[in-house]
Design a protein around this nucleic acid. Structure first.
Lengths: 220, 220
DNA sequence: ACCTGAACACCGTTCAAGT
DNA sequence: ACCTGAACACCGTTCAAGT
């Protein structure tokens, strides 16, 4: 039982991502993270500069699981692949979209931005001008984030997660059928599961079809 | 200068929304809110049950600015109107989508859910079954939230907000053109403004076109 | 070089005490 | 009925001190 070998940045980020996956964004505190590493909170500052640095590091790791698309493929396929892979990577680590959207993380490293650079490249290939690329990039980002965050809490929670039958029942009783007739109809009858990723893919295809239709190099 | 008349729930929510609009979600603390009301933090608990209650109250207020669509209109127009009005209301009060997505708010009152009930009603009119309505509802929600949250922070911040030229320049210097060729091209040339609401509308029309195409009552 | 204890300036919330 | 002070269990972070 010799003294454990010293900490380093990688070990801190490993533990942070583990903790965040298990306990969520609000469960990731410097003090809890330190405890998990068998150390005092203040020791962490020898290896990361602050909590934002940890969140950026986590985001970078997760982004780097998304590979750059093959520029030889048709641009539509490149867009589709990057978007889907971002969706999948983020859905494995929901802390990332949450931290991005709440501005707690803002990774600027090349490693983190490479998949997005590939996306931008594909959009340039489609013939969009700078403004068009920015718009299309925003649309793809918005779709990915919206699809994921919706699935991470919010007001239609009861319609998505039927894990806890009791909760849904409580929710139904809460709903006034006179004022919310359609909602209560939906709550009452919907019991089957949904597949968020399949829904995302459907939306993505819709978006890409729209991009194709508005791309300058539509018919070359 | 007589003693101010006593607080009540409405005044607390008024001040909370004001504070949140001015200082953001992280600026809204019980202690700061109390100070703004000339009172100690603990007094607030006489009028709201806790911070979640405040956030739900704020969400309810903002939701109630979105009117239920006219069920006599074509369902596509109903969907379009509700979605656009939700977008506008939320963009005036960004704390609402943020609190929803981070699960700090989860309004269940009829007053808050009425616009969504209208949306669900329109989707039933389109002939979708329960599962189809849920999917379409998720798509519309995701679009609204994604469009707004993207515009409230995140990794493409530098591409959207050109308020601070210096910041963008710093960002550009940060970017390695060898590893991020397309990104740096975009950063270098893009200087004009974007119109997030117009972009949202474009995406919304795309989505609605897709919904129309997949609606059971497509050609009646 | 790495770790720690004490401290600072914050959180949300409870509870007994005041009027 | 409404408000308060003190307290509890948390935050992120700094700084001087230890090894």
């Amino acid at each position: 039982m010799a003294r454990r070998e010293p900490l380093n940045r990688e070990k801190v980020l490993d533990a942070a991502l583990e903790l965040a996956d298990a306990e969520g964004l609000e469960g990731l505190s410097m003090r809890r993270l330190a405890k998990r590493l068998g150390v005092e909170a203040m020791s962490l500052y020898n290896h990361v500069s602050n909590k934002t640095d940890i969140l950026d590091g986590i985001a970078e790791r997760v982004f780097s699981q998304v590979e750059r698309p093959d520029p030889a493929l048709p641009w539509q396929e490149q867009v589709r692949t990057v978007a889907l892979n971002m969706y999948r990577a983020f859905s494995r680590h929901p802390i990332v979209p949450l931290a991005l959207v709440t501005d707690q993380s803002n990774p600027t490293s090349a490693r983190a931005l490479e998949p997005l650079d590939g996306l931008v490249g594909a959009l340039f290939q489609a013939g969009f001008d700078d403004l068009g690329v920015r718009r299309a990039l925003g649309a793809v980002n918005g779709l990915v984030l919206g699809s994921l965050l919706q699935a991470t809490g919010g007001f239609t929670e009861a319609l998505r997660t039927h894990a806890d039958e009791q909760q849904v029942d409580a929710y139904i009783r809460h709903v006034d059928p006179a004022r919310l007739p359609n909602f209560s109809r939906l709550l009452r009858h919907t019991r089957e599961g949904v597949d968020p990723e399949a829904d995302f893919e459907q939306m993505l295809d819709l978006l890409i079809r729209g991009l194709v239709a508005s791309a300058p190099l539509h018919e070359v």
